[in-house]
Amino acid sequence: MIQYPTLDEHAVIGVTAPSSGLPERMHHYLDDIRKRFEDSYEIIIKPSVLTQDKVRSTDSNIRAKELNELFTDDQTSLIIPPFGGELALEIINKIEYDQLKPKWLLGYSDISTVLLAITLKTGIATAHGTNIVDLRGRYSDETTAMWSKVLNTKVNEEVVQYSSEFYQSKWNHSQPSESIFNLDTQTEWKSVNAEAVTIEGRLLGGCVDVINHLIGTPYGDVKAFREKYIKDEPVIWYLENCEVSTVEFRRILVQMQYAGWFDNCSGILFGRTPVTTDTNSYTIKDVYQDTADDLQIPIIYDIDCGHMPPQITFINGAYGIVEYSDGKGKVTQKFI
């Protein structure tokens, strides 16, 4: 069975950097974060958060040690990295999976490598959603703010989230809004063949740029996860593409198919992607259509997930019911 962490009132949040840390010019973000959370959570900042060199916060052994410490102490209830990065993969073999206590780990982008590996190896639910740097504003938009309600959901309860009204079409880090994001474009979920869709199954996913590197390793054994933790239940994959080309995106999805990751898959959700260029006229929509044709499953795309915020908080391992029609979406997650 899936193990769902619990988030206590006035919980302690541990901030560590399994991938990238904050360069000195961003250290003032921590003051904003402490101020934002001072009435609700205690914040513990690990040293890796304050360092960054050659695309990493620090040495992989230190990054892994900090994460292991937060997962095994008696104080921390929730772990949120500052943001993603490039080389979280370097710590995957240094995580002490058999020692981890059920605690929430929340993040996305490169952090999704760690999220997925932990859930597949241990059956502990992990949370794909916002990072802590993007929670430093005076308030959060309605979609982003749901992270707290989702992580406060108890075992045998359910939580419902809806598609956003607007999303951010491009980053402007020098001019953040009071909620950090500049939500400037109307959200419209879509489905291949433009049909209304309802999908049910266990949720798994992350950023395709990085999670594909778990394929063929002991940390990406989806078959073993199915057999041990969810038996014969179908899987809904939620996936987002940060920056890979359309043809590389297609190659990754085909590799996932060959590796058995899409066996007993009831549908795929694709997040909005900033990748808009085609490759010799091969487009993102072609990728979605080819995948739907190959797998003969429903596909919903341009959902609230990934590098074009805001983001729905998806729980790896939770039982999901995803409903789409007329450009809108509803995600129900059951902690069963």
Rank of each mutant, 00 (worst) to 15 (best):
A292F: 04
K228M: 06
I43G: 00
D39H: 13
E240P: 01
G206A: 09
E178Y: 15
G107P: 11
S163G: 15
Y167A: 04
D59C: 11
T143H: 12
G21A: 11
I315A: 03
Y288F: 15
G317Y: 03
I80V: 06
L7K: 02
V244N: 04
T113M: 08
I92D: 03
L30Q: 04
T313Q: 04
E38W: 00
S57K: 06
S325E: 14
S179I: 10
T153N: 07
V222F: 11
K149G: 05
G201H: 05
V55Q: 10
T198H: 08
G206Q: 07
I13L: 00
T246R: 10
F249V: 08
G137K: 13
F71T: 01
Y139V: 06
H213R: 14
Q175C: 11
I268L: 10
I268W: 00
D184E: 01
S112D: 13
T76D: 07
K54R: 14
Q75C: 07
R34H: 10
F270R: 09
K334M: 13
K35Y: 09
P274G: 09
Y319E: 06
Q333H: 07
G84M: 11
D304V: 04
D73P: 01
P102C: 08
V275I: 15
Y4S: 00
V254E: 14
K101R: 08
L214P: 08
Q289R: 12
L115R: 01
I132C: 06
I44F: 09
N152D: 02
V208S: 14
K101G: 02
V15M: 13
Q75L: 13
D209F: 11
G267F: 02
G21I: 12
E42G: 00
I252K: 14
Y29F: 10
T143F: 12
I303C: 15
T217G: 01
Y238E: 05
L30N: 07
T291S: 10
P47I: 13
W261M: 12
K330Y: 02
V49Q: 02
G260Y: 13
I268G: 03
F37W: 07
S164W: 06
N68L: 00
I43Y: 02
I132R: 11
W147A: 07
S148D: 14
D53P: 03
T246D: 06
I132K: 07
A259V: 05
K54W: 12
I303F: 14
F37Q: 00
D74G: 04
L116C: 08
S164F: 11
Q161F: 04
T51C: 09
E178T: 13
T198N: 13
T279C: 07
F225Q: 06
S40Q: 07
T113E: 10
N264I: 12
E240C: 14
S163D: 10
T273H: 03
L22C: 08
T246M: 14
I2Y: 03
T277D: 08
G129N: 15
W237A: 00
W104M: 04
